[in-house]
């Protein structure tokens, strides 16, 4: 009984403090338990810079270091706004967690699987993992009349991500862990953009199929993925036969890549009726 009273007082104080003044954006101090869970006990969260705009909103630039499943140290730099409300700050923590989960995934996929089949495209562009405003991760590159784009995103809105709670954590995450998360989708899209012979187009198409096989072998039972191949316009490789290999929630999906994204949204809504599901796509 005695242990509970200070805990309750503490919770009340946190909420009051949250309402009363602007809080520090150091998530490791604000939510130490959850931070430790998401990024491990050895994670480091360092302030690099802070700036304020005319309205007084303070934005901090920070770096995060944590360890993935392989024991490899991963890092990311991120910007974070100082929030008054704990609820908003907590969503920032989950957003950061989702981003951090994608780093070992994309690194493993891009460094080891992708170059086996689309080396020229990624060597030419000096690729790196990029994050959009919606925290979708992507790597892309182009060469030899071909555009290759690999995007990973969570099909769960931020408003609902907090209810995921401990189901997501970057600490110890790897390709297999994230691939088996029902809310995560990998979309690999290869497009013929220039003058490419029918033979070369068929070769690229076969490379994509081979890459897909490697991904399945690595991830075991990946939940959601789309591997699509198509000419970018009717003039580019008109003879190239489009391809779409899609699996949603572990089951093969017959249809186009565009339809697959919305089909996943619908299937997730059925499976998780109380959650707000989005495509997570930037558009």
């Amino acid at each position: 009984m005695n242990r509970r009273i200070p805990a309750l007082l503490c919770a009340g104080m946190l909420l009051l403090t949250g309402c009363a003044e602007t809080r520090d954006a150091d998530l490791s101090q604000r939510f130490p338990e959850q931070f430790r869970y998401c990024f491990g006990g050895q994670a480091e969260n360092t302030l690099l810079a802070a700036s304020a705009d005319a309205s007084g909103t303070v934005t901090e630039t920070r770096s995060l270091y944590y360890t993935d499943a392989d024991g490899t140290q991963r890092s990311c730099q991120y910007e974070i706004v100082r929030r008054d409300a704990d609820r908003d700050a907590f969503r920032d923590l989950l957003t950061l967690d989702q981003r951090a989960m994608q780093i070992p995934f994309m690194a493993e996929f891009s460094e080891r699987l992708l170059p086996q089949y689309f080396d020229e495209q990624f060597r030419a562009d000096d690729w790196s993992i990029r994050f959009s405003e919606t925290e979708n991760s992507s790597v892309y590159g182009s060469a030899d009349g071909l555009w290759a784009d690999c995007e990973g995103y969570f099909t769960l809105s931020q408003a609902d991500a907090d209810s995921l709670g401990v189901s997501c954590r970057a600490y110890g995450c790897d390709l297999k862990t994230l691939a088996q998360n029902p809310f995560f989708l990998l979309h690999v899209s290869v497009s013929v953009t220039g003058a490419v012979s029918a033979e070369a187009a068929a070769n690229y198409r076969a490379r994509l199929q081979a890459l897909c096989q490697d991904y399945i072998a690595c991830a075991g039972s990946p939940q959601n993925y789309i591997f699509s191949f198509a000419p970018a316009n009717p003039d580019a490789a008109p003879d190239a036969e489009p391809l779409c290999i899609a699996v949603l929630l572990g089951k093969p999906y017959e249809g186009s890549a565009e339809d697959a994204v919305s089909a996943l949204e619908q299937q997730l809504r059925v499976r998780y009726p109380n959650r707000q599901i989005t495509t997570g796509a930037d558009s």
Binding site: A69, D70, E108, R112, L113, Q116, D174, L175, K176, Q180, P182, D214, Y215, A217, C218, A219, G220, S221, Q223, G250
Partner: peptide, 23 residues
């Protein structure tokens, strides 16, 4: 640990074991 992509110059190995009902 999970027979993830690994290997040496010349090849990579991808593989794992799964219970049929997983996921």
């Amino acid at each position: 640990p999970q027979l993830g992509p690994d290997g040496a110059d010349g090849f990579i190995i991808a593989g794992c074991i799964n219970l049929v009902s997983v996921a």
